[in-house]
Amino acid sequence: MAFVSEEEKTEDYLFKIVLVGDSAVGKSNLLARFARNEFYPNSKSTIGVEFQTQKLDINGKEVKAQIWDTAGQERFRAVTSAYYRGAVGALLVYDISRRQTFDSIGRWLNELQTHSDMNVVTILVGNKSDLRDAREVSTAEGKALAEAQGLFFMETSALDSSNVAAAFQTVVKEIYNILSRKVMMSHELKKQDAPLDGKTVVLQGDENQEPATEAPKSGGCC
């Protein structure tokens, strides 16, 4: 269970989003940049889990993203698997200057699929795009992987801010779209209440509503 009960009363929507990826790819700084517009060149490694919430305006509705930042080291996974619970969105982060972190993406995807309750709107994020000279993973490679896995894709830099907000927004918007469609559908079908709780969201791919990203995903998340 997330610590959501209070927020739920005041927000229209609250989405739980997790940040995953190898150690030192910049997960915490992506969050710091997005939520507080801050960046720490030598921020400490994340121990356990931390989270922040950030409000977004989506189609005039206030949406609150509760973003969970987790430790990157493998061995903490035993604990962090609990963090996936209830997540409806995920940023899968690698460091474009360290191929190793890109190679781990498959493992992270598995983990996500194993531990999350449902299909999660996922964006593949190649962070540290400012390190042009040290780049080891090309944009094309990232895109290709994202397409193959049906993920959104974006390259970001928490350092110079580029695409950071866009990456989060992409995920949140997509969740929102899926949710509203679901709500509409259920209204149409039975007029029954569609709880706005994220747990009820069933994600469906929808080409029409795709947010503008560098590399539109090739298919649904299912």
Binding site: M1, A2, F3, S5, E6, K44, I47, G48, V49, V79, A82, Y83
Partner: peptide, 21 residues
């Protein structure tokens, strides 16, 4: 209990690195 925080994740770093953070 009310907010479902029985797992006390917030205390995790305190114990792991003995309040260094």
């Amino acid at each position: 209990s009310n907010i479902g925080a029985e797992s006390l994740h917030f205390a995790f770093p305190m114990l792991l690195v003995l309040f260094r953070r």
